[in-house]
């Protein structure tokens, strides 16, 4: 395993959206729905991130079926592991923040 990877918000939501296979536009809609409308992935940003994630083997494109131009992606084992590690890191961050700021909240 590589050393601690801190995901960007976009990367986190892309991986989360790909827990079930999705095509590009599906990822945008899923990320927006998951975050209650807060996270809007722009097309160029998403396209670049998907290509980098494929190169890193965090996700893989599924074979394109006849007549369907939409490319679907799914999470790899490696991608899932990275997502789990990130969730763990976020849990710690929230707990630590809560601990320090408990008087303020």
């Amino acid at each position: 395993m590589q050393e601690n990877i801190v995901l960007t918000e976009a990367a986190y939501y892309i991986l989360l959206s790909l827990y079930t296979p999705q095509h590009g536009y599906g990822i945008m809609q899923r990320a927006e729905a998951l975050s209650g409308g807060r996270v809007r992935l722009a097309a160029g940003t998403l396209y670049g991130a998907l290509n980098s994630m494929c190169e890193k083997d965090w996700i893989i494109p599924l074979p394109v079926e006849n007549g369907d131009r939409k490319k679907n992606y799914r999470l790899t084992e490696k991608g899932l592991q990275i997502l789990k590690n990130e969730l763990e890191r976020l849990r710690h961050m929230v707990a630590e923040g809560d601990g320090v700021l408990k008087e303020e909240l």
Binding site: T8, E9, A10, R40, L41, A42, A43, G44, T45, L46, G48, A49
Partner: peptide, 11 residues
């Protein structure tokens, strides 16, 4: 719907 090409600083 909204149309943007970039949504973060990195991109």
């Amino acid at each position: 719907g909204q149309f943007d090409l970039y949504s973060d600083l990195d991109s």
